[in-house]
Write a protein that binds this DNA or RNA. Structure first.
Lengths: 205, 205
DNA sequence: GAAATTATTGACCAATTGGTCAGGGTCACG
DNA sequence: CGTGACCCTGACCAATTGGTCAATAATTTC
C-alpha cells in the first residue's frame, strides 16, 4: 500500500492519498515539519486522523513522500539546457521557468526551503547524489559556452545559486516582498523584467 | 524584570538572560519556533527549564526578544548608503556587509528566514512600518544615482531583493550550497567574487 | 448476495511540552 | 550577622500530539 510500484492501488487509495498529500503540502509549507500536526493535515484533506494514518504509516512518511515527488519537479528544468541553443536565451529560459515555479507553486518552494533550512535531515543523501550530479552536468554545459566565448565568464555554480536564490525569494519571502513594495505592485511581473535585465547585462560578453 | 528600560538588572539577570538568548538563537534557528522546546533552550543555556521561565515569561517572549534585537542589526547596514559616495562602491559595500553577516551570523539569518517563511506572524507590523520606511529611504538614494546617470537603471527595490536573497542564500541554504560545490570550496569567498562581478556588470552605465 | 477485502472512525494511550508553584538556597546590604 | 529581595529547582499539571486498535461500514469479488 505504501509501495507505489508493485501494489495496484484502488481508486479510493489513489484519491485519498492525493487528498492527503495536497493537504499536507499546505500544512507543512506554512508550519514546517514539527509545526504541522496530523490533525491539521487530516482536516485539510477532509479525512479523519486515523484515516490519514491508514494511508500513510506516519507523519514522517507523508513528509518524505512529498519531498521526493517535489524534488523531481523542482530539478527537472535544470536538465533542459541545450548545448546547441543560444546560451543567453537558454539561461533566461531557465530563469523564467524557475520564477514561474515560484509563482505557481509557492507551497512547494516553501516546503523545500523549510527542509533545507533545518539542515535537510531527510534529504542529505539525495542532495549529495542526485542534486550534485544534475548540477554538475549543467555546469559542464555552461562552462562550455563560456569557453567558446559565448557567455561572460563567471563561476557556473554560483550563477545557478543566484538563479535559485532570487527566484525562490519571491515565493519564500513573499510577505516581506509585499510589505516592502506596498500595494499596487505585481512582484512576479516586475521580478521577471528585473531578472532579464540582470542576466542580459551580466552574461553578455 | 522583563522591561529592559526602567528596571535595573542585576549582574545575574544580565548574564542569564544573555545565556538564554544565545542558546535560544541556536535552537530556534535550527528547529523553527514550533520545533524548539524550552527544554532544549534551557539545556543550550546551561540552566533548568523553570529557571529559563523565571527570566522570560514564555517561549514566545524569548522568540520575540530575539527577533526584535535581530531586526535592528539586520537592517542597520541599509541605512548607511551615502548619497555623496560613489554609487557602485556604495552598493558593493552593502553587498559585502550583507554577505559577511550571512557568514558570521548564520543563526540570525536562519531565525529570520524561518520567521518570514511562516508568514512573519510576529513581525508583520514591524515589517510594514520600519522595514518599508528604511527600504524606501534607500530606494530614494539609489533612484537618485540612477537619475544622475551614475548607475544603470533598474528597479531599486528589486535590486535590494537581489542582494538580500543572494547573500542570505549562503547562510540559509548552506547545506545545499556545500552539497553542490563538494569539498574544496570556500562558498563565501567565491560568492564574494561572484557578487562583485555581477553587480559591477549589471550596474555600470 | 454472501464472503472477503478494504475503508473509516471513536476511544484510547503514552510521550512530549509549555507553564506553574511552593519551598528552599543565595546574595547584597545595612 | 540578619533580613529582605533575588535566584533556583523538583514535582506537578493540563493540553497537545503521534500513533494504535477493535469494531463497524462500505466495496469488491465470485
Amino acid at each position: 500500500m505504501t509501495n507505489g510500484k508493485t501494489a495496484p492501488m484502488t481508486r479510493i487509495q489513489q484519491k485519498n492519498r492525493q487528498l492527503i498529500l495536497d493537504g499536507a503540502l499546505g500544512v507543512f509549507a506554512s508550519n514546517g515539519f514539527r509545526g504541522a500536526t496530523i490533525d491539521q493535515i487530516a482536516k485539510a484533506a477532509g479525512l479523519s486522523k486515523p484515516n490519514v494514518l491508514y494511508y500513510f504509516r506516519s507523519k514522517d512518511e507523508i513528509h518524505k513522500t512529498l519531498l521526493t515527488r517535489l524534488l523531481e519537479m523542482w530539478l527537472a528544468p535544470l536538465s533542459r539546457f541545450d548545448p546547441k541553443g543560444d546560451p543567453l536565451e537558454e539561461v533566461l529560459t531557465y530563469v523564467r521557468a524557475k520564477l514561474h515555479m515560484s509563482r505557481d507553486y509557492p507551497r512547494e518552494s516553501r516546503l523545500f526551503a523549510n527542509e533545507i533550512l533545518q539542515g535537510a535531515p531527510h534529504l542529505t543523501e539525495v542532495l549529495e547524489e542526485d542534486l550534485k550530479t544534475i548540477v554538475d552536468r549543467a555546469v559542464v554545459v555552461i562552462a562550455g559556452w563560456m569557453d567558446q566565448g559565448r557567455l561572460a565568464r563567471v563561476q557556473p555554480q554560483h550563477l545557478i545559486f543566484s538563479i535559485w536564490s532570487m527566484t525562490q525569494h519571491y515565493a519564500d519571502f513573499d510577505v516581506q516582498v509585499r510589505a516592502v513594495l506596498g500595494p499596487g505592485h505585481d512582484p512576479f511581473d516586475e521580478a521577471e523584467k528585473f531578472l532579464e535585465q540582470l542576466y542580459r547585462k551580466m552574461l553578455s560578453v
